[in-house]
Design a protein around this nucleic acid. Structure first.
Lengths: 114, 114
DNA sequence: CGTATTATATAGATGGTCGATATATAGAGA
DNA sequence: TCTCTATATATCGACCATCTATATAATACG
């Protein structure tokens, strides 16, 4: 169970982290925007409450998977813009493969194929 | 996020519960056997430690999704055999569909399709 | 006869999520 | 102008699920 970053443990955590990284693929975004976009893109299926969102962002930044910088547009309200790092991008690639393997094995058992 | 029993929250919990229910589809089993079978069927991908396994079994029984009965074979050591109830079977069917929806939406965002 | 395996069970520690709360700015409407 | 809502970030305490460790006991094997 240590083959990938996805474990039967902490699925939710990895799911949340990976969704955030994925949405950062097509451009830098700030936290609030990330949450809205994930909700919209998934047809309101996935939803972040901000009590969960911000600690995850801080963790991802600490891990070096994203990089945040405060915007000082004067005109705008304070925002922290996040961008995917090279490390985060590579990690995300591996995760997509890992999630697919997870689901193949999971559905394999759920549907009694074999 | 309340549409199905699968939520972005508690994914692991649902995953664990559903794997157990799934393996009970093809016959009654006891706890220890269930864990071994899930591990084997998944090529050692999924693994239960018994500190997690037994509380889940008790919960599923309390929920009425499985039914346990102690075997008193005399010859055998004490075992609690579990069988899937009608309620559990219906629940499992719904969950397979729910997991597929979950994964479709999830991979949709992960791969930036749309 | 002792050790490993089978088998079930619980307790304490850990850690992640949820809901509530705090703070502050921008824009809409009265 | 004043208030309410939406935007935007952040933290804290309560809750709950999992993990590790521990307890118990019977059977199989050497």
């Amino acid at each position: 169970m240590k083959k990938t970053d996805i474990e039967t443990q902490n699925l939710t955590k990895h799911c949340n982290e990976d969704l955030i990284l994925a949405v950062l693929q097509d451009g830098d975004k700030h936290g609030y925007q990330l949450a809205l976009e994930i909700e919209e893109k998934s047809g309101h299926y996935f939803r972040f409450n901000h009590g969960t969102l911000y600690p995850i962002l801080h963790k991802l930044e600490k891990d070096g998977k994203i990089k945040g910088s405060w915007l000082k547009d004067d005109s705008k309200r304070k925002r922290k813009q996040y961008s995917l790092t090279a490390k985060g991008r590579k990690y995300l690639e591996r995760q997509v493969a890992a999630w697919k393997e997870f689901f193949d094995r999971f559905i394999g058992i759920m549907e009694e194929i074999e």
